[in-house]
Structure formats: C-alpha cells, structure tokens
C-alpha cells in the first residue's frame, strides 16, 4: 500500500530534511483534549464514529498541554478563562499551532458583551479560523487539513529567525 510498492525494494528515498520533518509533524499531530462550550461537542463528534478524525493521525487527544502540539479552542473564551487559556498555551512545547473553532472563538460570535473575548486571537496567536456556529465536523476537519498545509509550507530558516 505504501511507498515501498511504488518504488520496489530500493531502500533509499531522497528528500530534504525540511519536507521530511514537516511531513512527520502533520501526520502525528496530537490535539489537546480541551473543550470549552458548544463546539466541544462537535469536536467530540468529529472524533467519534461517523467522522473519525483518526484518519488524519489525530485519534490521540492528550489531556496534558505538555504532550500536545495543536490547541483547538472549541468555544467561547470568557474573561475568567482567558488567563487559564494563555497558561495552557505557554505550557505547550514548540512547535505548536492553534485553531480557533467556531464563531465565538474567532470573533466573539453572537456574544458581543462584557464577558467574552471578541476573538481568542486577543489571548493566543491563532493559525486557522473555522467559521460556523458550531462548525460541522467536516468544517473542523477542513480546518485541521488547512493547518497541515500550513505546516508543510514551513521553512527552517523562518523558524530560525523568530
């Protein structure tokens, strides 16, 4: 099924280190098991039988931020939760990515009021925004694949600069 059938028993693959590292990062991305509100239920649906996110190497949700490299902010972030969210983000090891799932996490959604951050990008830097209230599991999977695209395009020299 894999590359060995196409190439035969050659035993050698040439590629750049960059491609290799980025490829391996995309195929074993561990999200943090961290649900906030309504979107968390759709995130669970995406994990469950009908949608099955493990097709993208993501069946393993880690409860500890120190073992995960993708944070899916699933739901609205309140003023009381903001500092906690930031601490969780700081505890994640580099490299790390953030998906703002749903309208509330992206821009505050319908809750334009005193209690909710108008977008989680005021708390943590966001890589991909997923629209919807809540987004369908397909939309979340699309968001995840968009992160994968972003990771595949990362250059070592950019990382070294920052």
């Amino acid at each position: 099924m894999g590359v060995e059938q196409k190439l035969g028993n050659m035993g050698v693959v040439t590629t750049t280190l960059e491609t290799m590292v980025n490829w391996s990062r995309t195929n074993a991305m561990w999200p943090m098991l961290f649900g906030l509100a309504c979107c968390a239920i759709e995130m669970m649906s995406a994990q469950a039988s009908s949608y099955d996110m493990s097709r993208f190497g993501m069946e393993l949700m880690r409860a500890s931020p120190r073992q995960s490299d993708l944070m899916i902010v699933a739901g609205r972030v309140s003023k009381k939760m903001g500092p906690v969210l930031r601490r969780l983000y700081d505890q994640m090891p580099e490299p790390k990515w953030v998906i703002a799932m749903g309208d509330c996490a992206s821009c505050g959604g319908v809750f334009n009021n005193y209690a909710i951050y108008q977008g989680v990008d005021e708390v943590v830097p966001v890589d991909v925004y997923v629209a919807g209230c809540p987004p369908r599991p397909e939309a979340l999977i699309h968001g995840v694949l968009t992160v994968h695209e972003k990771v595949k395009g990362e250059k070592f020299k950019d990382l070294a600069k920052s």
Partner: peptide, 30 residues
C-alpha cells in the same frame, strides 16, 4: 454586570469594509 447602569460592553464587529481600521487597534496576542 446585571445592573442596568453597567454597560453591555459592545465592541465594533470587524467586517470587510472596516477590517484594516480595526485590525490596527485590535490587541492581538504575541
């Protein structure tokens, strides 16, 4: 918060016509 003299705390939503203007003053996280 539930007192009537406490403001609701409305923030201007970001649309395509005022995207850049709000983008400049939005406190993005580092």
């Amino acid at each position: 918060p539930l007192r009537k003299d406490y403001p609701l705390g409305y923030e201007e939503p970001q649309f395509s016509f005022n995207y850049d203007e709000i983008d400049l003053r939005k406190p993005y996280a580092k």
